[in-house]
């Protein structure tokens, strides 16, 4: 079947989609967006978390056909998403000018220096919340959405909001640090 879906603001079309394919498979294998990860494909790990019409969902549990005509935001579009939020005068965003203050300090070839990042992406780098990084895209989408709803989360709020995202490397401590950091860096009273 044919599928039309808007991903990260861009209309996309995929042909010959098998009816049993998940949105995750379509994103990864057909639309060239492998950022959303395939760790469990049973809704247990959150690595494939995307926003579907604004709502965080496990893209592995969305049948491709169910995404027809809908809007999807993936980790690849997170920086743009954050920028639009701040431009829209959204309640809690951080402008990218501000975000740039925390650009990665690394100076190595692989840093992707100069890449625009959302505040939560930057905070994950700065706090050491990334090890193997496989859980990171899903966590970023989930954490970004939580901060959008709840700019001043308690530790228990953060843990609850991220309880659907498994990480096997970090023991979550640095992830907690990263989300706290991203929350603290939000301009107050916007």
């Amino acid at each position: 079947m044919r599928l039309n879906v808007t991903v990260n603001g861009r209309p996309q079309e995929a042909d010959d989609v098998w009816e049993g394919e998940s949105l995750l498979y379509v994103l990864r294998e057909r639309l060239g967006l492998p950022g959303s990860k395939n760790a469990c494909e049973q809704g247990e790990c959150g690595s494939c978390t995307v926003r579907l019409d604004g709502v965080p969902v496990c893209s592995c549990l969305v049948a491709a056909g169910q995404a027809e005509g809908r809007e999807v935001v993936t980790v690849e579009g997170l920086a743009d998403h954050a920028e639009q939020r701040s431009h829209a005068g959204g309640a809690h965003g951080t402008s990218l000018d501000e975000a740039r203050q925390w650009q990665a300090r690394g100076t190595d070839s692989q840093t992707g220096e100069g890449t625009r990042l959302s505040p939560v992406q930057q905070a994950f780098i700065d706090a050491g919340a990334v090890q193997c990084g496989f859980c990171t895209p899903g966590l970023l989408v989930a954490a970004d959405e939580m901060l959008e709803r709840n700019p001043n989360p308690s530790d228990a709020d953060i843990r609850e909001a991220l309880s659907g995202n498994l990480c096997r490397c970090t023991g979550y401590e640095k992830i907690m640090d990263a989300v706290r950091l991203a929350a603290a860096r939000q301009p107050e009273g916007v």
Binding site: E76, G106, D108, T111, T115, V130, G133
Partner: peptide, 11 residues
């Protein structure tokens, strides 16, 4: 910071 950090947070 990790040299692969930016790539990992952008997918």
């Amino acid at each position: 910071l990790r040299p692969d950090g930016t790539l990992k947070v952008t997918g």
